[in-house]
Nucleic acid binder design. Structure first.
Length: 476
RNA sequence: GCUCCCAUCGUCUAGCGGUCUAGGACGUCGCCCUCUCACGGCGAAAACAGGGGUUCGAGUCCCCUUGGGAGCGCCA
């Protein structure tokens, strides 16, 4: 009755962990966690030519970064080939499978003929009932499933509902290749069964496979696990996800400066919802997750929303935690290692820490955070951006000269103290605060936008601040 | 071509026959806050693909059309 739920994530190691796969893993994980079950990991490496060690490492790394853990050791499918063959022997003995000696060329002709006649391309069953005596001795056979030709195969899907596929549209799929290696279709069934998988959650692109696999389960006399085929993720243009927008590996999101918890939150909302809740912790997601609340239509990947969510998470993360996350991801950010070196060399990590509250308010990603902090490590004389240079008019430079003089006397060096001096000077000079603050910002940061200018003054420290002001002040 | 799936604002979605003059979020556009940019606050524009049914009543159920998507390998 209350059997323990077991799900699995089964990527094939032919590339990185792309975003669709990441969400599939997340749903499996959320589902298992919400029901106190387990999520297993299986590496589908039966395609020896395309599977690589690097891809396996990238997938494990991606899952780990995203915070999705799995129970037990990963199962490597290829290592289980003997067991897969064993299952086929059983089907052969039971008459549920047969040897097929059709050549690749024959199959090709079959497909071409079918296409020419407007029929769906499928195997014509030419060896289905041929006696063993007719078997050619010069080539090894492939083993095919003796699939039902009439009736229909039904998949009771937790997301898609009842899906009915006419058996006439499903041909006798290959179980064992002529070289004796198992096919994916067979391996999945045997492995899911042996691993005790109770719920198969994967992309809808496997929906038709679910019907074929159901036939294999039937031939083996095994119970079919519960199925849930979740919709795919599309690109912003509605087409299949491509490199251009979102079909990137998890590590690409790390490089773009996203926080794993933000990505998890975003991915969870793609296809699944809990009322109007948009922002929620992983703990809440686990508590709320219900496969019945997964929708059936494909979702488009929206970078803008991900960014917004990430910005929210950055602002909500306590400074010390964010600092730790930032330091940890620095090696992966563009220009990150160099920035880390500069921060180290100039001893400005503490300045960075001081500026963090103001910085994180203005950044949607860690990359933006890094960029916003650039003024901290830039060496004098500062390179002034064109837009900022326009602020440094002769009048402004003169004002900065006066400011420099007054700031010299400020002790202790504080934001409130500096603010008072700046405001007083602006008032005495008969200009609005902005007329002084903006040139000051340009002098201090080389830009026209930055955190609050008094906070910048503090983050930079008295000596550096005065030096930068002097660099831009007239006659100073 | 065949089979299957999908269809609410630009996007993600709430909605599970009446409480929908359709709600939230992102994005967009105003206004406020303000030393800049953000943040925050307030407000606006913005959707039930079309057509038939069923029903006292349909965004919600059924059918068709249209438009998307996926699958049709001795790949996974």
């Amino acid at each position: 009755m209350s059997e323990t739920v077991v799900t699995r994530f089964a990527p094939s190691p032919t590339g990185f962990l792309h975003i669709g796969g990441a969400r599939t893993a997340l749903f499996n994980w959320l589902f298992a966690k919400s029901l106190g079950g387990k999520m297993l990991l299986r590496i589908e490496d039966t395609d020896r030519a395309r599977s690589t060690e690097a891809a396996i490492a990238a997938i494990l790394d991606g899952l780990t970064w995203l915070g999705l853990d799995w129970d037990g050791e990963p199962v490597f499918q290829f290592a289980r080939a003997a067991r897969h063959r064993e299952a086929v022997e059983q089907m052969l003995a039971d008459g549920r499978a047969y040897r097929c000696y059709a050549t690749a060329q024959e199959l090709e002709e079959m497909r071409a003929a079918a296409q020419a006649e407007g029929r769906p391309p499928r195997y014509d069953g030419r060896w289905r009932d041929r006696p063993a005596s007719e078997a050619p001795a010069d080539r090894p056979p492939a083993i095919r499933l003796r699939a039902p030709t009439e009736g229909e195969t039904v998949v009771e899907d937790l997301v898609q509902g009842r899906v009915v596929i006419p058996n006439k549209d499903l041909d006798d799929l290959v179980l064992l290749r002529s070289d004796g290696t198992p096919t994916y279709m067979l391996a999945v069934v045997v492995d899911d069964h042996d691993m005790g998988v109770t719920h198969v959650i994967r992309g809808v692109d496997h929906l038709t496979n679910a019907a074929r696999q159901t036939q294999i389960y039937a031939a083996l006399g095994w119970p079919v696990p519960k199925m849930a085929h979740i919709p795919l993720i599309h690109g912003p243009d509605g087409a299949k996800l491509s490199k251009r927008h979102g079909a990137l590996g998890a590590e690409a999101y790390r490089e773009m400066g996203f926080l794993p918890e933000a990505l998890r939150n975003y991915l969870a909302r793609l296809g699944w919802s809990h009322g109007d809740d948009e922002i929620f912790s992983t703990a809440q997601a686990i508590e709320w997750f219900d496969i019945a609340d997964v929708g059936r239509s494909a979702a488009r990947f929206d970078m803008a929303k991900l960014s917004n969510l990430n910005g929210h998470y950055m602002r909500a993360t306590p400074d010390d935690e964010l600092l730790a996350a930032f330091r940890a991801s620095l090696p992966y950010l563009p220009g990150g290692p160099e920035a880390a070196a500069r921060l180290e060399a100039t001893g400005r990590w503490s300045a960075f820490e001081g500026a963090l509250p103001g910085l994180k308010e203005r950044a949607k990603t860690l990359v933006e955070l890094l960029d916003g902090a650039r003024f901290l490590t830039d060496a004098r004389p500062l390179a002034i951006e064109p837009a900022a240079a326009a602020l440094l008019t002769p009048e402004a430079r003169a004002l900065l000269a006066s400011l420099h003089g007054r700031l010299t006397t400020l002790e202790p060096w504080s934001a409130t103290g500096a603010e008072e001096i700046v405001r007083t000077l602006a008032e005495e000079a008969g200009v609005k605060l902005g007329a002084l603050a903006q040139p000051l910002r340009a002098a201090l940061t080389g830009r026209k936008t930055s955190p609050g200018i008094f906070d910048v003054l503090v983050a930079l420290g008295k000596e550096e601040s005065l030096a930068r002001i002097a660099d831009q002040a007239t006659g100073a």
